[in-house]
Design a protein around this nucleic acid. Structure first.
Lengths: 342, 342
DNA sequence: TTGTAGGCGTTATCAA
DNA sequence: TTGATAACGCCTACAA
């Protein structure tokens, strides 16, 4: 059963069951159009021969591959691999195979559309925010457009189905946590901005600071890249400060971790000397010392919902006109890196 | 160029270049069999029409999908996603697409061979050690056998191409590091054993202890599962000990981290009160506090080599009779969690 | 050097 | 309810 000299075809099954290939095909895709008796004979023949449908032939005929493509900026990054994990599982549940593309940023248009023109994949889950907006628009809504669902840090301009979190609102809640703890001197490690738009997490931070009537000191704003190194750099700038904030909101966990680690080397303890809140809740966050307070980014859920949405689109279950946009909530996870000042 | 109403076929290109479809096909696969002049005309026609080869049709005809399948136990685990990252890249370089399967342990035989019988993939990279040995043997060498390369913790019994590290030898070097630091009272957090065979890292540990004539105390051996929790459990057992070791070799980093964290909660500092060495060098290891001394597992290299080997097999560049077995070296990375006793 | 023709394994259309 | 037949788009003898 495991293997046989040569993969049996639908013809072999047909012979075995003494019916035509057409009937076998029908049993497999529209069982209700076949009589009970022959249906059973065919099923038996299928398992007797160990028949498995040839996907290549099926794809050719159906112009559909039952396969979806996921494009990621960096699989090695645990953030993305967590999403990928959920996507693979959900796709499998729905009977789809999953093709993976990594770091295609170089010449995205050609590479990506190739997958569809060559009918290797039916739809796309795009997690790579580095795609040019107009290009994205063309890919998504152009002539031979690609069914797709995107999930970026920031809501894409293009008219595309998307699964997102509300970064601005979540950043507000992160900042509010610090305010609620009694902190008034609060700094921020700023995430990079895309397309010249200010980072939404930074905007959320500023909103709350204004609302709480707290001073927004320029020297308490540390520019970052999301990489851990910028946390270290922020720590250096922090240590050189004549007057220091008592709390810092970092636009992501990596930078927060770098920041805390560098401070510790300089003799400053978190949360004793400084409270730090991160963003994303990466795997390290809970095992770090101190365990990092952060906003939980629902990565698994994003992967699952993106896959569901895409397959709904592919199978016509989704309204074609209005691309669905799902917004998820990032929850505050209080751990050990923030403390009350009261 | 990005898209067109309907994907152009080889016929469209042929018409455009005023040649036959056969000639276009030849230009694409055996350019040398076509005259310079027509070759150019065809190339122009290809780019004019925006033609992309239809992989489904090609696969059907060629009985090859130019696609490889990777089967992983858990994509979400950074260990595997790092390998995956390298595999995706290397496959792309060689012109192969990559299909991903996750957690298929339930009914491996059917699911996996399906991919090949249905000609969706040409070969397999197997990272899931949970496969039954005889099943593996059948899959690898049976009648309609699947070209494959495996990479597990332990060398598979089956007659299969493999890319591995020598766990036993690396564990010896890890233990020797502790001995060289002057430790004589050394414990071990044992990794799980597969197929009733003792964990090779445990064997390596015992070898060195015997060689150094150090006492192997049963109560200093903590059973583990590779999950962080067993590190916590080991810490509890450790704390209850009347006499404690001064150093511990943990069979992997997760357990080492759990161990150190739990000890810290109980007031024991690493490396002041205890030296700990892990294994694998996962991403957290360097950012943990203290930065973890460990054996670096060459995951990227494994992914790259496994992919190369598989494609060599697929393209007939590898000797079919004798499956190649590549053994890589895990390097010692000394960081902050181990200290000298002298 | 180039073209013609047949078939890879499926599914959909049309009759029976 | 079932069967014959014609594509789907490509590659490769075989002919010219």
């Amino acid at each position: 059963m495991v293997t046989s000299k040569k993969a049996p075809t639908i013809q072999d099954v047909a012979r075995h069951a003494k019916v035509s290939a057409a009937t076998v095909s029908r049993v497999l895709s529209n069982p209700e159009r076949v009589s009970e008796a022959t249906r059973e004979r065919v099923h038996k023949a299928v398992s007797d021969t160990g028949y498995t449908i040839n996907q290549a032939a099926r794809s050719l005929r159906m112009r559909a591959a039952k396969t979806i493509l996921i494009a990621l900026p960096d699989i090695g990054n645990p953030f993305y691999s967590t999403v990928l994990d959920a996507v693979v599982d959900e796709a499998a549940v729905r009977g789809y195979s999953l093709l993976v593309a990594n770091r295609f940023a170089g010449d995205p248009s050609r590479l990506l559309s190739d997958y569809f023109l060559s009918s290797r994949a039916d739809g796309l889950i795009l997690l790579d925010g580095g795609v040019d907006t107009t290009l994205l628009q063309a890919l998504a809504t152009g002539d031979g457009h690609v069914p797709m669902v995107v999930s970026f840090d920031e809501a894409p301009k293009a008219d595309v189905a998307a699964v997102l979190i509300d970064n601005l609102e979540a950043a507000e809640r992160a900042t509010e946590h610090l305010v609620a703890l009694g902190h008034t001197k609060i700094g921020h490690i700023i995430g990079p901005s895309r397309n010249a738009a200010p980072n939404p997490r930074f905007v959320g931070f500023k909103n709350v600071m204004a609302r709480a009537k707290l001073e927004l000191r320029p020297e308490w704003l540390f520019p970052g890249t999301y990489a851990m190194d910028s946390g270290l750099a922020a720590a250096e700038a922090f240590l050189a400060l004549p007057e220091r904030p008592t709390a810092v909101f970092s636009a992501n966990d990596e930078m927060a971790i770098g920041f805390v680690a560098a401070l510790r080397n300089a003799g400053l303890e978190c949360p004793r000397d400084i409270s730090v809140i991160g963003f994303d809740d990466i795997a390290i966050a809970r095992h770090f010392w101190p365990p990092l307070t952060t906003m939980h980014h629902p990565r698994e859920q994003i992967g699952r919902l993106a896959t569901e949405s895409l397959i709904d689109i592919l199978e016509g279950a989704a309204t074609p006109g209005a691309p669905r946009r799902i917004t998820l909530r990032a929850d505050l996870v209080v751990r050990g890196s923030t403390r009350s000042l009261r």
